[in-house]
């Protein structure tokens, strides 16, 4: 296994992991969350899309903290704030969804049209 890995590294199949890899992964998670937010009709599915987007942002913060030593602490602290904010956002969004469900007996976001102009 290990000589195989060394050969793969020397022949260029496995490049060393850098900032780019994490940024591409975070962009992929962001796009997945965005498509999830747009395509789901269940309000909790939309909330899951928001969680995916927040995770992408946290991955970006930690990756920059790792590869730019100047912002090592800032990246980690702001990723911590992102996690706490996501918890708060999930609590409020679920409370709103529950309240909406009590009134309309559905969680379809297309039914929420009382404020529609």
């Amino acid at each position: 296994m290990i000589p195989l890995l060394a050969e793969a590294t020397s022949s260029g199949w496995i490049t060393p992991i850098g900032l780019h890899h994490y940024l591409f992964l975070a962009a992929f998670l962001l796009v997945c969350g965005l498509v999830c937010m747009m395509a789901k009709r269940n309000a909790i599915g939309v909330l899951m899309g928001v969680e995916l987007v927040l995770n992408a942002a946290a991955i970006n913060f930690v990756a920059f903290a790792r590869y730019n030593r100047t912002f090592e602490l800032e990246g980690q602290i702001f990723a911590l704030f992102v996690i706490v904010m996501a918890a708060a956002e999930a609590a409020v969004a679920l409370a709103i969804v529950l309240s909406f469900y009590h009134q309309h007996h559905t969680v379809d976001v297309d039914n929420a049209r009382e404020l529609k102009g």
């Binding site: 395509a39 789901k40 009709r41 269940n42 309000a43 909790i44 909330l47 899951m48 969680e51 996501a86 918890a87 999930a90 609590a91 679920l94 969804v97 529950l98 469900y101 007996h105 559905t106 969680v107 379809d108």
Partner: peptide, 22 residues
């Protein structure tokens, strides 16, 4: 947070007749 989300899924069981397909 995931426990919250799963509780939300459980408490808002949608009506079987209403489909939420996109």
């Amino acid at each position: 947070t995931m426990v919250l989300v799963i509780f939300g899924v459980m408490l808002t069981a949608s009506h079987p007749a209403s489909s939420l397909q996109t």
